[in-house]
Amino acid sequence: MTDLATYNFAYLDEQTKRMIRRAILKAISIPGYQVPFASREMPMPYGWGTGGVQVTAAIIGPEDVLKVIDQGADDTTNAVSIRAFFQKVADVAVTTHTKDATIIQTRHRIPEQKLTEGQVLVYQVPIPEPLRFLEPRETETRKMHALEEYGLMHVKLYEDIAINGRISKTYAYPVKVDGRYVMDPSPTPKFDNPKMHMSDALQLFGAGREKRIYAVPPHTEVVSLDFEDYPFEIQTFEQDCALCGAHGVYLDEVVLDDKGGRMFVCSDTDHCEDRREHGHAGAMLAPNQEAAE
């Protein structure tokens, strides 16, 4: 009696996985369209990635190598627990290296390293409807998607410029996929929006509480919405990463003390570690780590 709790491979039963795969196939066929699916209860609370976990569970196979990131980091609670979950219920290999992974489940970031053909990026999505805060009625937003009435999205951007002098939306920045559907790229920073455009990897989005799956197939046009005289632009950072010296990557601010001390480091921990291994050093990296230990 060693195996008291036995799970089907990847936790979900085969019929459920089949249902989710059908939703995924439909989502891939209609890029950016939100496909309803019968989301299951997962052994974690809503908001912790139940949608992403179900998508991953439906596509993962014994040969896959899984990487899980939360805000770019491999070592935060959400990432660690989901990784451990799949190690337990699917017994798959896991990695923190972007280039080695076949499936990357992510919350809020796209890895800095360019994704390649054959990789699948699974997003955990809290609110899949980009028009939700502008139009509360689901019946109405569905109609707006069906009839391609997206003027309202620009009203939001107009409002941003009128109040702040620029488009101040920095995350969940709306995009138009394949010239048709307006899509919420989940709360990724707009810094990552250009990476979605013509990506070699397949991008799948799962929203567990809202029961929606949508997708961006490889080599699909993803355009961020903007005005002709206020074009879309991504965040820029004055500093380089304090640990690896990387420039032009997305940085997190880390508060060091209560006297205003702070440092800016790569949000993508794997990217940062990889650079340090290759001898890059930022301003605040300890000069000799072996000596310090």
Binding site: G151, V155, Y158, E159, A162, F227, Y230
Partner: peptide, 19 residues
């Protein structure tokens, strides 16, 4: 939303993209 956006909504709905 502001008065300007209220008036502009129809323009944006028919594809006006110049703020």
């Amino acid at each position: 939303v502001s008065a300007g956006a209220n008036v502009g909504e129809r323009l944006m709905a028919v594809g006006d993209r110049h703020y």
